[in-house]
Amino acid sequence: MSISSEVAIEQRGYTHPEILVSTEWVAQHLGDADVRLVESNEDLLLYPSGHIQNAVQVDWTSDLNHQVVRDYLAKAEFEKLCSRIGITPDTTVVFYGDKSNWWAAYALWVFTLFGHKNVKLMDGGRLKWEKEKRPVTREIPKFAPTQYQAAHERDDESVRALRDVVMQHVKAKKPLIDVRSPAEFTGERLHMEDYPNEGALRGGHIPGAKSVPWARAINPEDGTFKSADELRKIYQEEQGVQPGDDVVVYCRIGERSSLTWFVLTHLLGYQKVRNYDGSWTEWGNLVGAPIEKP
């Protein structure tokens, strides 16, 4: 069993260890005006039922997604969100949440689309915080609104892959990582176990994709990330995907693959990893898109 969670983050061999903070670090920075804690969960009742002191909630559906188009916020709405939670471009935003930080990684990825530089994940998320019996509160913090100015328009190219790019990627036989469960990858299931079929007409995977379920990067007992050596073994040695490769990751709607994008980009230092957020709910229905089954 992995014991990397017992090893300090900076000793786990990550390329950018500063992207992760420990629960203890968070506990020490609860009142730091330069730090904003952001909780992002799947379960909407979790945050109001108890959250870390001074944490605000950013919900992936109502706060990050466009409400009419299947897309993310545009720059003006993102600025409005950041202003509402009282941050500036210099604020260090620390994300955490349920489900081993799925949604937290997703939120971090969306903030990256707009060039917010100072982003971090709390290693282990809610699970670790709760297991350590650290205090939570139901008090919703109030911060003075800011006039946040995003660094640039939403960047849909550097860390995001749209379907035409993915099509070219497939034709060029560049590496793709499918982070869904093995049964989804083979096409046995059209959706994650215990999750609904969200309308994908076909089962299988994008041609050439390698199957590396997202959870392999996580220590299940406390939701922390595995060490760099353990991660390299999975992605580099087993799958042959190298740090210099142009990589596209995908899942069902882009949330699980945000976590794998985070691992490859920030923990292992891969230079070019893009998240295909259209993922299987788009590709599995896309006219003219080839699929592969084992």
Partner: peptide, 16 residues
């Protein structure tokens, strides 16, 4: 009860 914004996964669990 929970609103239409509930995630599909969570909604399916409650329906279960």
């Amino acid at each position: 009860i929970f609103g239409k914004e509930i995630s599909m996964g969570k909604g399916q669990g409650l329906m279960g």
